[in-house]
Each structure stands twice: as structure tokens, then as C-alpha cells.
């Protein structure tokens, strides 16, 4: 008797090879474990490639992230790597921004410009983040650039001066930074708007925002980002299941198992790599995705038609 490797997913309306989905989860988990940032922007396109409808792929990925970020948040919390104060402020901002973003998409959908905004936002965000991280890590590896520390240097940057002048300054002990509470709130709104527009969890935007704009140490960034993403994805999963019926939790469970095992290997690989090597690898990955998206926009497509609601 042969082992049934295929599983029918009634929400996705298709049959998938269990090993293939498990392997995809493992691959994305490996990358997440190495870089400590999201797999949403990789997992969704991979699922679409194996025949999962885009809306089901995105929603089920959110469901998978709930499980992955639960174990991740607890592990980081035990190690003291979660800045709950910062995470909650980012979360409040993120929820507000997400609501604003959904309304922007609704208005633009009516005007017929939503796809344009989504595509351009993706390419610009991936391009800016990827190039900036790549450049910075390259300079650090070449030892020609001293670690950016504008507050410690003789003359603070314009950005640091603005940040210092903002009202309601507060000490974030876990992160070791003193900031106005407006900063995480505003940046949370910004990431929330972008997440809603781009339809992703926001991890790959949140991490650079925390590192470069909130000046948080890398180990706290990963834990706090996971904490914030856990709640965002709980909300997204319930909303998507209720309104669009697009959450396939069987698919999510297989991905979760694969990504967790992949993440274990990823973490052990990341321990052997230097922070700048990690950053340059992540930057390369982000730039590859950006170039792929840019080519999709520039090259004449094979089929000019697409279903409404698809990516």
C-alpha cells in the first residue's frame, strides 16, 4: 500500500503534496531563522506557484505566522528580548495604520488605481530597504564606515535632533533607548498602512524601522517584532476567516511544522554568521524579490487577464 502524499485542501480547493508544502515551510523557516525577519513576502508567492489561490495563500500564511510567532515570542520573552512597552505602542499604531490602509485601498479600488499603488509601494519599499541595508553592511564589512551612532558623535544628525525634541519622552528599558511615545506610534501607523496596502505581516518593514529609526538593539528587535506580529496576525486570521473564508488551517499547520524545523537550522546557521554578513544576505534576498517584481511590471505578461482579488 502506497503512502498518500497528497492532501485535499477544501478551502484552497486544490490538492497539495504534503512533502512539498512541508519543504516550502522548511525553506522559509530556514531563512526566517537566519535573518529573524518575515517569510510572508516569500511564502505567499511560493504558495501561489503551487496552485493555491492568492487570497487563500496570504490568509493561511497569516494563520501559520500565529503559530510560529507564538513559539518565537515565548522563546524571546524567556531570554528577555521582548520590549513589551515598545511592542504595544507599535501594535496600537499598527492597528490604526492598518485600518487607514484598508480604507485607502477601498477608495483606490473604486477609482481603479489600487494595483498601481500596491505594485509601486512594493518595489519602492523593497528597493529602498534592500539598497540601504546592502550598502551599510558592505561598508561595515570593509571597515570603512564607523558604526552609525549619531547621538554619541559630536554633532547629532537632524533626525536625532527632531526625535529628541518630540514631547512625551519615555525610557524603554529593554531596548535601552529614550524616545517620545509618538515615535513608535507614528512608525506603527506607517508600517500598518504599508502592511495593509502590501497585504503582508510587515516584519520586513518593521525590523529595519526598529533598527534604523528606533535605534533598538538587534536582539530586542527580533523578539519585539515577533510579539507585535503575533497580535497583528491573530487579528488578520480571524477577520479573513470571518469575512472572506480564505483561511486554510490544515495548510497553515503543515507550513508551521516545516517552518519551525527549518527555523531551528536557520538559528544555528545564524549563530555562525556575523551580524553584517546576515544583513548583507537579507539585503540580497530583498533585492532579488524587488527585481523579480520590477520585471513583472516591465515585461509584457504572457496572459493579460487576471482574476479580481488576485495579486
Amino acid at each position: 500500500m502506497s503512502i498518500p502524499w497528497h492532501l485535499y485542501l477544501p478551502i484552497a480547493g486544490n490538492s497539495v503534496n504534503i512533502l512539498l508544502v512541508f519543504g516550502m515551510g522548511g525553506l522559509v523557516g530556514l531563512l526566517s531563522g537566519i535573518f529573524g525577519v518575515g517569510g510572508g513576502f516569500l511564502m505567499t508567492p511560493l504558495l501561489i506557484m503551487i496552485g493555491i489561490p492568492p487570497t487563500v495563500a496570504a490568509a493561511s500564511d497569516s494563520n501559520q505566522i500565529v503559530g510560529a510567532s507564538t513559539s518565537g515570542t515565548i522563546a524571546h520573552f524567556r531570554m528577555g528580548n521582548v520590549d513589551i512597552k515598545m511592542g504595544l505602542l507599535l501594535l496600537v499604531g499598527g492597528v490604526l495604520g492598518g485600518t487607514v490602509g484598508v480604507q485607502i485601498i477601498k477608495v483606490l479600488n473604486r477609482m481603479g488605481n489600487a494595483d498601481f499603488l500596491i505594485s509601486i509601494t512594493y518595489v519602492l519599499m523593497l528597493g529602498i530597504i534592500g539598497i540601504y541595508m546592502f550598502q551599510e553592511s558592505l561598508q561595515a564589512l570593509r571597515h570603512v564606515h564607523k558604526q552609525a551612532a549619531p547621538v554619541a558623535s559630536g554633532k547629532p544628525s537632524a533626525y536625532a535632533m527632531i526625535v529628541q525634541k518630540l514631547p512625551w519622552q519615555m525610557m524603554f528599558e529593554k531596548s535601552g533607548v529614550r524616545l517620545s511615545i509618538l515615535m513608535p506610534l507614528i512608525l506603527g501607523v506607517f508600517v500598518g498602512v504599508l502592511s495593509a496596502i502590501m497585504g503582508v505581516g510587515g516584519g520586513f518593514i518593521m525590523v529595519p524601522v526598529m533598527v534604523y529609526l528606533l535605534r533598538m538593539p538587534m536582539h530586542v528587535v527580533v523578539g519585539t517584532s515577533l510579539f507585535q506580529i503575533l497580535f497583528t496576525c491573530v487579528n488578520v486570521t480571524i477577520m479573513q476567516a470571518y469575512t472572506n473564508h480564505t483561511v486554510d488551517f490544515v495548510l497553515a499547520l503543515i507550513l508551521l511544522l516545516g517552518s519551525t524545523i527549518g527555523a531551528q537550522f536557520g538559528v544555528s546557521i545564524s549563530k555562525r554568521l556575523k551580524a553584517d554578513q546576515l544583513k548583507i544576505l537579507l539585503a540580497s534576498l530583498v533585492l532579488v524579490v524587488m527585481v523579480k517584481m520590477l520585471l513583472d511590471l516591465l515585461l509584457t505578461p504572457n496572459i493579460l487577464l487576471s482574476y479580481i482579488g488576485g495579486h
Binding site: S71, G72, A75, R78, L230, S259, Q264
Partner: peptide, 16 residues
């Protein structure tokens, strides 16, 4: 499942 995996794997960082 996340909690179980966390216990089973001794608290992996988990992808997100």
C-alpha cells in the same frame, strides 16, 4: 501548535 512546538524544540525562534 506554536506552544507545543516551543516546548518540543526547546523554544525555537520561529519564523514570522
Amino acid at each position: 501548535a506554536g506552544l507545543f512546538i516551543g516546548v518540543f524544540f526547546g523554544g525555537g525562534k520561529g519564523g514570522h
